[in-house]
Design a binder for these strands. Sequence first.
DNA 1: CATGAATGAGTTTTCATTCAT
DNA 2: TATGAATGAAAACTCATTCAT
Lengths: 197, 197, 197, 197
Amino acid sequence: MANPSTKPRPATIDKRDAILDAALELFVDKGFHGTAVPEIAERASVGAGTIYRYFTSKEAVVNALYQQYKGELTALVMRDFSLDAPAKQLIHHLWTRLADFARRKPRAYAFLELHHHSTYLDETSLAIERRILDMGVRFVQAAQQRGELKPLPPMLLLAIVTGAFVGMVRKAWEGLLELTPEVIAGGETCAWEAIRA
Amino acid sequence: MANPSTKPRPATIDKRDAILDAALELFVDKGFHGTAVPEIAERASVGAGTIYRYFTSKEAVVNALYQQYKGELTALVMRDFSLDAPAKQLIHHLWTRLADFARRKPRAYAFLELHHHSTYLDETSLAIERRILDMGVRFVQAAQQRGELKPLPPMLLLAIVTGAFVGMVRKAWEGLLELTPEVIAGGETCAWEAIRA
Amino acid sequence: MANPSTKPRPATIDKRDAILDAALELFVDKGFHGTAVPEIAERASVGAGTIYRYFTSKEAVVNALYQQYKGELTALVMRDFSLDAPAKQLIHHLWTRLADFARRKPRAYAFLELHHHSTYLDETSLAIERRILDMGVRFVQAAQQRGELKPLPPMLLLAIVTGAFVGMVRKAWEGLLELTPEVIAGGETCAWEAIRA
Amino acid sequence: MANPSTKPRPATIDKRDAILDAALELFVDKGFHGTAVPEIAERASVGAGTIYRYFTSKEAVVNALYQQYKGELTALVMRDFSLDAPAKQLIHHLWTRLADFARRKPRAYAFLELHHHSTYLDETSLAIERRILDMGVRFVQAAQQRGELKPLPPMLLLAIVTGAFVGMVRKAWEGLLELTPEVIAGGETCAWEAIRA
DNA sequence: CATGAATGAGTTTTCATTCAT
DNA sequence: TATGAATGAAAACTCATTCAT
């Protein structure tokens, strides 16, 4: 009642978001093929047909989700990221930003993690992934040239750090580890000592 | 007369194995729900109905696969595993055994990794997983008491090491990293330095 | 505005009824297991999947049919049934009401008769049957105490009368007997003289 | 051991009979379409393929059963059946012979009763049924001409008597009535009084 | 002869998508 | 624009029948 001039916006955005939110939860819990479109509709409190007014297909929904959250995560990590800061500082930046995202939006992080390389992701989604990886490799190489990191294949160091992070978060999903600030900081220490020269 | 012990071989074992092999590949590539039973049958060069002579359902196939390979991997890691060896040696043992398995049976390792906590795994499958985890935690605690590892939550250290390993192997699946002996050894060094006190 | 109470009519009720009608015919002709769901769908001029919007399974369809028609028949027989009327009058009531139903809805009567004790009937369906039988036995006992019926086991007298009725109707199904008013009345005479004291 | 010269007979006949016996039970309990051929094989302690050495198809099994028992029952009823005996005596003969069969071979009687007019019976099976019916009608007509029976359509009288008998036996199947000699005799009295002039 | 493993056609059921309202 | 009833193609699964042993 506060803003009677904006007519078609609120509902439209609300619906699209409701669909994406519902899909996110279900895809994480039951997988893409294990989730039925009417199920998404029901959880979104939306008619089944409505989903097709916002997305061309079920695949379009996963890809929209993937691109939205991968973009969000990338932006979060990139902001204030100085390419020539010391490696230790870069790791700190990366680790805390990722942890922040994973704690604030655990579903979204789980979704990105679980749907990495699925057959139903389109070229756009896969391209984002590749671009981020490329950048990571360049950072590692730069730091290695400065002698800050172990002289191992950059891809291996990247894999170790991101793998360790994913390992930590997954245990948290399973309820086996609580992501307290201490745990996150401890994980960062491990990650740093894993790759430092 | 020469070999009276091999009776159920002719086709029975072959067929069951063919089905499991086909299912392994497809489940890794397209997921459980993304794989149709007739698809498995075709790749196994077997009639669709035949699958139901060996397994009661599609779920029974995933669980058979999970239990077979998880058992195999567990046995491989456990053999000659001395509980009171120095932590560094334990990490070496774990890392090389896992890497050996992941290199020899990459599909099987990928399968185990991707299907960890799926809704279609039965209680037996999930119990195996829990048992292994328990054991891991106890080893870490023992080593921590000897002052060999960082005084962080055991579950975190476990997560860091296994996460790092999975990260390494995943990059190998994607063709971004080759699992040469040097790379594997390098990864081990990282893992060890990540958690050493 | 004129008729606000009839809302779910347009197609919902029509479709459900079309499915039940089609299933009734097919179940009578070919049996429950002998009838395929798409066959029902085709005869009902409905998509195969539509059946599952109205019934949870094929079994649910038989049971819905059974309960609908058994209820209808029971209500028809019960209406104006005076418990303490002379037995001859009760037989007349019963016989004519049953015959009326059997003539107006021969398929439905055949269905009820053929599916009496099937393994796919659920507890609700079987309970209806038992309740009716109980009532019949009580009527017979009362009439026997008044000396109107033969002093034989009530269940036997019940069996004789209902059996005779079913025998008559079955010959009509087979086209060997026409259910004219005279035939029906003749059958009633037989039934009455069969059990009268 | 008494007769070493008859080699292939015992097993062959045993097997065929075992198959028929198993099929009889299953068809009565679960219906024709509800019974799987391998199920019959298992209950007959015979390989599934063996059934096809004795019968060309599942349908051939039902028809063999039908013809065997219908023939047996017919022969039993026909033996010593004098066409010109008084109707009361004929009813007694019929009723006691049928009851004898129904008590000695309840499964077989149930089978004949339940499978009367099924789509899977072949022409031979159906012809037997028709022939018996014809004969029944002629007996009734003869007795009517002698003034012993009610002047109602012969098919109706036949239907009443056989229907009453079936009604009696069915209650026995359901455990609601015990086929003692008294009950059987009581039923006969009812049947006779139902149709007597 | 007897078998039972193997099969593919056929069964019941689900679900992504459409479209009349 | 939003809906959800309707659908048919495709899923999981069953079973009558065959055939190598």
